[in-house]
Design a protein around this nucleic acid. Sequence first.
DNA 1: AAGACGAAAGTGGTTGA
DNA 2: TCAACAACTTTCGTCTT
Length: 306
Amino acid sequence: MAPYIKKCSECGGINLIMNKDKGEVICRDCGLVIEEKMIDFSQEWREFDHDEGDKKRRTGSPMTYTKFDRGLGTDVGQRGDVYQLQSKERNKYFRLRKWQHRISTAIERNLKLALAELKRVASYLKLPGSVEEEAARVYTMAVQRGLVRGRSMESVVAGALYAACRRHEIPRTLDELSEASGIDKKEIGRTYRFITRELGIRILPSNPIDYIPRFASALKLNADTQTKAVEILEKAQKIELTSGRGPTGIAAASLYVAALINNEKRTQREVADIAGVTEVTIRNRYKELLRELDLKGEIKKKDLED
DNA sequence: AAGACGAAAGTGGTTGA
DNA sequence: TCAACAACTTTCGTCTT
C-alpha cells in the first residue's frame, strides 16, 4: 500500500496519524480530524505474474452483508443474450425472470430497502465501511429472527448502526444517529437495547476517550489540548470518577478543563453543544475533576503566566 | 451583556423487592 | 410490577468578568 502522505488542510502540517480502527486521520499539530472514512481493506485483485495470479484469484466479488444477498445473487437472463433466442425460448426466459422476481421473499425485499437506508445514514455520518458492514450483519440477523416486526425498519437500522459504532469503538451519540436517520432518540435507544439483548451482542460501555478527537476537532482545539484531555480522562478513570456517568459528559468536561489549562478557553455552552450535553452536566463533572485531581494549581499557574 | 455558577424541580431509565 | 434511586436536563435567579 502506498504510504499515506497528505497535508493538513488547517495548518499545512504533514504530521498526520491514521487510526485504521477508528477510520480517522488526525493532524498531530492542530488536532483536526481530516478524514473520517476508511480505506477499503477488501481483496487484492491485481496479479503480477502467473504464480501470483493463482494464489490471489478467487471467485466473485467479496462477500458482503451490505448487499441483500451478500453479493452472491444470480439473475436470470439480464443480458442481451435473450434476444438471440427463438421466440418460444424467449418466452420461457421471460417467465423465469418473472418468477424470480416473484419469489424474492418479503425478507429479501425488506433487506434491500433497509440496506439502502443503512447506506444513506452511514454515509451521512461518514462511518467507515467496516462499521456499515457490521451494522448490515446485525440488521440481517435481526430480520432473520423476526425482531423487526412491530418496529419500524428505520429505527432498527439506526439501532444496528449505533451498536456497530459502539463495537468498533467509534461511538456516535444517539443525537447524531437521530439527526442522521430522522428517528426519535428514545426510539433508537429502545431498539438498540432490544436487538442487542435478543441477539446476545456484547457491548462494552463506551469509553469517553473515544469521543475526544471528534469533539476536539469540532471545537478547533489544538493537539496539545486534546492530549491533555485524554491525560485527564485517564487519571479520572483510575480513581473511578467515570463509572456510572454519561461518557459524553465526562469527555466534554475534560476537554473543557484541558482547554482552560492550555489557554484555549471555550465557553461551557460551546463545549456542551458539541458534546450534546448541558452546561450543568459539564459543570458538575468539571467540579468533580477539579476537586479529585487537584488541577486547580495547573489552571492558576497558567493564569499567572499572563 | 455574556458567561459561569448553583439550587430546585422534572424526566427517563435501571434496579431490586 | 412498582417504588426507590442516580444521572441528567430544564429553568431560573445570582454572581463575575
